[in-house]
């Protein structure tokens, strides 16, 4: 660990190792399209500790992927702009750093694995070269050494016959193997935080199981913090320690994995859990959440979930923005009736 401390200080001046690994505090992101400002993330906050897995759950358009791009500093600007909040790594606000520092942070401290491995890899270079490039650019290692490290990494992520496969091109790998290559690239510089943005959505279930097992195992070995961005609550239940549920650009509930699934305090979380079909239960009619996710350009007044909410008070919820209610230790929900929902009284 001592070795690691030195690295952190080198590449991230002012790092306080007693501070939490990664804190996202009231992060705000908006898109500016044709003169209109469309909020994508409207105050997201969560904390990630070493060796823990935080699942960011939400449907399409909830702002979960934009949040991860803002943390990584890979948001497309324009049209996306970070308009507020802090992203603190070891207590250092990354949003205030210059591009030079941010580039060092990417890969060295925070790395990301995308959903679509095929488009995230350059088809013109061999995978070994693409992994090795990271060493050459960031660490200045020689070509031969870089290749050696690439083989080690491919081996680590469970690619059989890594010595030969290192010279292959992305299209020569199957979907699951490509995702392993992506993970190898993300791990190359030994990051402290790994963001996995829907890492298994494009894969078959049996391959998904392999990849999730691999991610979990690597995280345990390296004591990394893992942010898992997904819409699949089944995967979340399998691997996460904490959950942040996002809806319309806000984190509407933050809880431990057990609380989130067993005693949700936000009506949306509760409805979502009831709406998922399960293999181990039968029931003909599925419970559904009525209506549609809101359009970020014209969000409903008050609580954005109120038009679809089963627990909403027609007056209060449509006019007042809900408070961040703490229903138990480390369990908060953005709802006027969080306490009632938590106690199952509403």
């Amino acid at each position: 660990m001592a070795e690691n401390v030195r690295v952190v200080g080198d590449t991230l001046p002012g790092a306080d190792l007693n501070a939490p690994l990664l804190e996202v505090d009231d992060l705000r992101v908006e898109f500016r399209v044709r003169g209109k400002r469309i909020p994508a993330v409207r105050g997201a906050s969560f904390t990630l500790e070493r060796g823990r897995t935080l699942a960011v759950v939400g449907e399409s358009g909830s702002g979960k992927s934009v949040t991860s791009q803002a943390i990584m500093g890979i948001l497309d600007t324009p049209p996306g702009y970070v308009t507020g909040g802090e992203v603190r790594l070891h207590g250092v606000d990354l949003l205030k750093q210059g591009e030079e520092t941010r580039r060092t942070v990417r890969g060295n401290h925070i790395a990301i694995v995308f959903q679509d491995a095929l488009s995230a890899l350059n088809p013109l270079w061999s995978v070994g070269f693409q992994i090795g490039e990271l060493y050459r650019v960031h660490r200045g290692t020689s070509r031969a050494d870089a290749r050696k490290r690439a083989i080690e990494l491919l081996d680590l992520v469970g690619i059989p016959d890594a010595k030969n496969r290192v010279g292959h091109y992305p299209h020569q790998f199957s979907g699951g193997m490509r995702q392993r290559v992506m993970i190898a690239m993300a791990l190359a510089l030994d990051p402290e935080v790994l963001i996995a943005d829907e890492p298994t959505t494009a894969l078959d279930v049996t391959v998904q199981a392999q990849i999730m097992r691999l991610l979990k195992q690597i995280q345990d070995d390296r004591h990394m913090g893992l942010i898992l961005i997904t819409h699949d609550l089944g995967v979340v239940a399998d691997v996460a320690d904490e959950v942040a549920v996002m809806y319309a650009g806000e984190v509407v509930e933050r809880a431990s994995i057990h609380d989130a699934f067993k005693r949700p305090a936000h009506p949306y979380t509760k409805a979502l859990l009831r709406a998922i079909p399960r293999v181990d239960t039968v029931g003909r009619e599925l419970e559904v959440i009525p209506g549609l996710p809101p359009n970020p350009a014209s969000l409903p007044s008050g609580c954005p979930f109120h038009p679809r909410c089963w627990a909403a008070d027609p007056e209060k919820c449509s006019t007042e923005a809900p408070p961040y209610e703490e229903v138990a230790e480390d369990h908060r929900a953005l709802c006027h009736f969080a306490k009632e929902v938590y106690r199952d009284e509403r």
């Binding site: 279930v205 998904q208 699949d232 089944g234 239940a237 996460a240 057990h258 699934f261 998922i276 293999v279």
Partner: peptide
């Protein structure tokens, strides 16, 4: 069937 994750953290 066994690869399908079940949304219940207690079964983990």
């Amino acid at each position: 069937l066994s690869a399908v994750p079940v949304p219940d953290p207690d079964l983990r």
